[in-house]
Design a protein around this nucleic acid. Sequence first.
DNA 1: GAAGCTCGGTTGACGTGTCAATCATGCTAA
DNA 2: TTAGCATGATTGACACGTCAACCGAGCTTC
Lengths: 163, 163
Amino acid sequence: MASATPERRRGRQLPTAEELRIWRDFVETTEVLTSRVAARLQLDSSLSSGDYAVLLALTEAPDQRMRSSALAAHIGWERSRLSHHLGRMERRGLIRREECATVPRGAEVHLTPSGAEAFAQATYPHLRAIRELFVDALAPDQLRAAGDIAAALREHLGPRPEE
Amino acid sequence: MASATPERRRGRQLPTAEELRIWRDFVETTEVLTSRVAARLQLDSSLSSGDYAVLLALTEAPDQRMRSSALAAHIGWERSRLSHHLGRMERRGLIRREECATVPRGAEVHLTPSGAEAFAQATYPHLRAIRELFVDALAPDQLRAAGDIAAALREHLGPRPEE
DNA sequence: GAAGCTCGGTTGACGTGTCAATCATGCTAA
DNA sequence: TTAGCATGATTGACACGTCAACCGAGCTTC
């Protein structure tokens, strides 16, 4: 491994101009992409990406309810972020928080009928948007490459930064 | 064309499970990536990604100043977003807003010495973070693929959604 | 010259995210 | 028993973004 990628990768501290260009392109573009998908979701269903993530998790949960901390872990959010978001969703009647019977200080998040309904309405157009804006943009090998890149990045980034 | 990509792509409305998995992976991972880079920047220099974008543009601008609208266009922000952000940056002494001599109602954004200093301090560690967290994670062909994917997505997304 | 237009920019309201502090509760140990 | 301590979650302060409304020049245009 000392010579596989010669001077390109050895002793260099900073990205080359080309690498930097790719970085900026990549980041900006994915930002546009996600915001475009979010805008479609909002338009089609009045849900944000956050709402959708929460509703998806609850919909798939047994009994359509979940401990708050489990939910946070499941969708990869900080607890405080989830708490704020649940507050907003509760105000809109999408979910309900109840004391957990089993765990002393645990809160249980329930999907309300209107939340389930909203999610059901949102699903199809959302998936279509993902197909139209993401999948359809890429050739099959590019799509595969996107998966590989995500995997490589995640591998490289490792778990949360020392926590 | 009826058979090049047979049932995979014809008459299908929704992404397959595999496509959906790639989408989620891709989005989540890029989110983690950018937030990790932003965290490093914050730690190294007390600047946010937004701050950095503004300071970069001003640093490279002739005379280190720029019309507000030109700046917004240059970094691809909405005017209102920029206005809010400039307010925060001005409070911290990173930039200064002055009336524009030439254009009637135009505001001109100036880089302050302390803003220039902050940017200079931030640049090197920031570039290093990009290299460590992004470039180093990918094999050369993956990096190239990332560039291609960004280009394909941008091409497909087109300019802003009918505006 | 007054009504209305556009242009450049700001403002307010509100949703969203992070961080640090707080809080209630149950456990453990002096 | 009570002084800590861990756990599960909420809260407040503040940065950040978007959207829609607004505002103050300068232009028309009648």
